[in-house]
């Protein structure tokens, strides 16, 4: 297991791509909601723009744009993918 790449989604910068390994949100309802929206293990996310006040951030997932606050993206773990 390549643990060294394990980072959370909130650390990613706009424009970077990310592959999800684990959605570890304690709140069960929200975890389910995120899974339904496409934040699934193995799924790919592209980081979009941050809100003018720094948070939330827009993410492109499954052809749609979903905004998440840091409180949520902090709990989504995975690895950065693609070229730098």
């Amino acid at each position: 297991m390549a643990k060294r790449n394990n980072r959370c989604l909130s650390e990613m910068k706009p424009g970077e791509r990310f592959r999800i390994e684990k959605v570890a949100i304690p709140d069960a309802v929200l975890r389910r909601r995120l899974l339904d929206l496409g934040f699934v293990p193995g799924g790919e996310v592209e980081v979009g723009q941050r809100s003018p006040l720094g948070d939330p951030t827009a993410y492109y997932v499954c052809g749609t744009t979903i905004a998440l606050r840091k409180e949520e993206s902090n709990y989504i773990y995975g690895e950065k993918i693609g070229h730098d």
Partner: peptide, 10 residues
């Protein structure tokens, strides 16, 4: 505040 997600439609 509770968690939530906001969709930004095209």
């Amino acid at each position: 505040p509770t968690h939530y997600t906001l969709e930004l439609p095209p």
